[in-house]
Design a protein around this nucleic acid. Sequence first.
DNA 1: CAGAATCCACCTGGATACTG
DNA 2: CAGTATCCAGGTGGATTCTG
Lengths: 124, 124
Amino acid sequence: MSIEEMVLDPYQAGCPTRRILDRIGDRWTVLVVGALGPGPARFSALLRHVEGISQKMLTQTLRALERDGLLTRRAYPEVPVRVEYQLTDAGRSLLAPLKALETWSIDHFTQVHHAQTMFDRRDS
Amino acid sequence: MSIEEMVLDPYQAGCPTRRILDRIGDRWTVLVVGALGPGPARFSALLRHVEGISQKMLTQTLRALERDGLLTRRAYPEVPVRVEYQLTDAGRSLLAPLKALETWSIDHFTQVHHAQTMFDRRDS
DNA sequence: CAGAATCCACCTGGATACTG
DNA sequence: CAGTATCCAGGTGGATTCTG
């Protein structure tokens, strides 16, 4: 194994990074966690504010995050039912890295968009 | 619009964050960028070291990243052909946020795995 | 070696209807 | 309100084959 290969190896399947990225790498997880950043929220609130997510996907995503210990689900036996989701400490600790990504997105959005335009113009 | 709604709104579709996340949120982009972090690499090297990626997906991912201006493609007219991919400044600037995510992954992997085990045991 | 092209199985995820 | 259950279209992406 070359030195180059050793440097690249952190991205082999099965390593922690890879497994976490596979989990949060779906379309919705990051958005749901982000939406819960400010504080607890109800199912319907999340459904409204993570635009484009379906009820099915929200349920699945919340379930997965609960399973990962990143949020807690609390149901209040009222009528009608109220269910609140809240990030755990672990879930909240994910906010900083995601915020970094968000900051990068905002900082580079214009630049990326411009690059795309140039690229598309070239090979047309 | 309530204050809660205003806080949640950054995640509406079409906003910079959302659009970037949609782009890098696929299974491979993050891994390919990460693999290019240490320096330029050839197509075949990436194919070997981003485990599980197919030739088709690697091609697609590299093309998209090139379009975004996050990496450059340089072909050397040798026999056999040699093609090297290298992150641009913009691409490299993405490494820090991704590194933060990677650090988080490593730090929380055990904890997440444990939470999953508990969760699965409970409702079995 | 670095792709392009084709085929197609699988799975994601939306729509809909129903329930406690 | 907060889900569950079912159906199914569309797209993702792997496998394979072929080329400069």
